[in-house]
Design a protein around this nucleic acid. Structure first.
Lengths: 196, 196
DNA sequence: CGTCTATTTGAATGTACTCAAAAGCGGTGG
DNA sequence: CCACCGCTTTTGAGTACATTCAAATAGACG
């Protein structure tokens, strides 16, 4: 097994000496997930952050009515965890589930702390990852506040053209904050409009 | 003039030696703003990140119809900037305006880079600030997707009880993603409900 | 005091949801 | 290999949540 994918990802932001790579790898876990297997469930302590090597995952939470809200999808080269609970060592508020056979590399909270101490450049790496995650999330907030459901769906298709094929529509609906029924009518309207 | 407020804020996450404090202070700018004066306008290069010492600010952007969306409010002890544009040295997508007389400390993008190099613990500080900003923003996304306008208003009042008194209702409405008219009817319903 | 902006109110409208039922589709076991 | 089961998607009717527009009222500030 090789960790090229995660090392390439890291190298986009910091560069590691060979012995630093070895230290990093010594903290790295690996996990395979069958379709529908969960990486994390609500209430569990969120011990690790995962980097997707292969496959596709989805993070979601349940509201008081038992309805799912999709927080994010994660594909190869993405990092995923319940960040708040991972950082603060709290029980998870979300589920992370494999949409298909997937493999992930994992860093535990303690492992990451050791890396932060031994190799301060990991602070920089995570500063940049957090920055990107923050600005992406802020953009999502603004789009949720200002765009209609149909416009949000269009943006989603632009940003993640492949996702639309890989995941069920009801999960896209829950990412956009609309019902599957309404997403269906949006799609009907679009196909009607494009035929004319 | 003293920088106690910002040093106290930083000390919650990293500790600085006296000479490190001096280096930090040497990069620090200061700005006073009269009510309605802007710290940043759309299209301008976003050169600095600001820490609120006194007063109250609001970050907002305009959508294609010219409507405002409030991205965040900022009060003493808060950091505020157009993060995406600050980090990537791009023209700003938002406005940041003083709601009342305010003072802020500022770090420029170049100054921050120098701090990152000279004092790597600033990477840690910003990693933590970005983490907090990300998880806060993610929570806001989930609340926007799952809660009704009235529930979002209730949460807002719980989280920021003082804000509701300091800022005009139409700005709260634009933070919640609803019209000022509808916020007004929500408030009417609540006061009717609480009287019974 | 007058002006300007914010807030309230109400009627008409639009966007998105709920519920129910039918149709489609994929996987699994006989 | 096909029939069946369960889940997803579609469709439609009725409803609820939130907006638009217009007008009246209230507050803030010079």
């Amino acid at each position: 097994m090789t960790c090229d994918s995660i090392l390439t990802n890291i190298a986009r932001n910091i560069s590691l000496e060979p012995e630093e790579v070895r230290l990093f790898e010594s903290h790295l876990g690996f996990r395979e997930l069958r379709k529908k297997e969960t990486l994390l469930q609500e209430g569990q302590l969120c011990k690790a952050i995962s980097f997707v090597d292969q496959g596709a995952l989805r993070a979601y939470c349940l509201d008081k009515h038992g309805r799912e809200s999709t927080i994010m999808f994660a594909f190869p080269d993405w990092w995923v965890t319940d960040m708040y609970c991972f950082i603060n060592r709290k029980p998870a508020m979300m589920f992370i589930e494999a949409l298909e056979y997937s493999c992930v590399f994992q860093l535990t909270r303690d492992g990451l702390d050791e890396l932060f101490t031994a190799l301060p450049k990991f602070e920089k790496l995570f500063r940049i990852l957090m920055q990107n995650a923050y600005t992406r999330e802020q953009l999502r907030t603004i789009e949720n506040l200002t765009l209609t459901a149909e416009e949000r769906y269009d943006r989603f298709l632009e940003k993640y053209p492949k996702v639309a094929q890989q995941v069920p529509q009801k999960q896209i609906a829950s990412y956009l904050g609309i019902t599957p029924e309404f997403l269906s009518t949006i799609r009907k309207n679009k196909s009607r409009a494009s035929r004319s």
